[in-house]
């Protein structure tokens, strides 16, 4: 997506901005969510565009973006592993599950593997407490799992590359 001068991105951002009112401060968080849903993270250029659009200093936007768990400022891996660390999962030893995934991928929670295949995230509670401990990979749920299940789950995702069938955002460049 590296088109020179960021023309493409700028157009795409304008496309998103159409749904919002300029200078409306309350649209900041929804805007950040929309931007993140495109890129998977919040690129600096996008934050600058938002800053101009909502007429807020970049520092404030950066402050908001770093406040909430949902926003990330670095690109994510292809597969996002979310380990639930809610109370119910904790009681059912989710710390061991997390540790096992961390050692298997050789990264810590919040990091991405060097081949950009996996990112591990910790979530506070995904509300599926009754099937604790829970891990989700992308959109798939894995409930009532144990450490022994980890290698198989990871294997499933390390094979296929998701890149090829990623939907490209539709943008009207006219």
């Amino acid at each position: 997506m590296n088109i020179k001068n960021g023309y493409f991105e700028k157009k795409m951002h304008e496309h998103i901005f159409k749904n919002y009112e300029a200078k409306d401060k309350s649209s900041l968080i929804p805007l950040l969510q929309d931007i993140q849903s495109i890129y998977g993270y919040l690129p600096e250029a996008a934050l600058q565009d938002i800053s101009d659009f909502v007429d807020m200093p970049l520092s404030r936007i950066y402050g908001v973006a770093t406040f909430y768990n949902q926003f990330r400022l670095t690109p994510l891996g292809e597969n996002i592993i979310r380990v639930c660390r809610g109370t119910a999962c904790h009681v059912k030893n989710s710390s061991n599950i997390l540790f096992a995934i961390e050692t298997a991928l050789n990264i810590k929670a919040g990091e991405t593997t060097r081949d950009k295949k996996f990112t591990i995230e910790i979530v506070n509670c995904i509300g599926a407490c009754s099937i604790a401990p829970v891990v989700t990979v992308n959109e798939d749920y894995y409930g009532r799992i144990s450490v022994k299940d980890i290698p198989n789950i990871l294997k499933k995702y390390s094979k296929v590359s998701k890149k090829d069938n990623l939907p490209q955002p539709e943008v009207n460049l006219a």
């Binding site: 200093p57 520092s59 936007i61 950066y62």
Partner: peptide, 28 residues
């Protein structure tokens, strides 16, 4: 009303800093 610095992150990791924690010389 310059807004060059703000709180970033939260909890024990909160800091008052420039966007992207860059040098103040390249901030606003």
């Amino acid at each position: 009303k310059v807004g060059a610095i703000d709180f970033t992150k939260r909890g024990f990791l909160s800091t008052v800093t420039t966007p992207y924690n860059k040098g103040i010389n390249i901030s606003d």
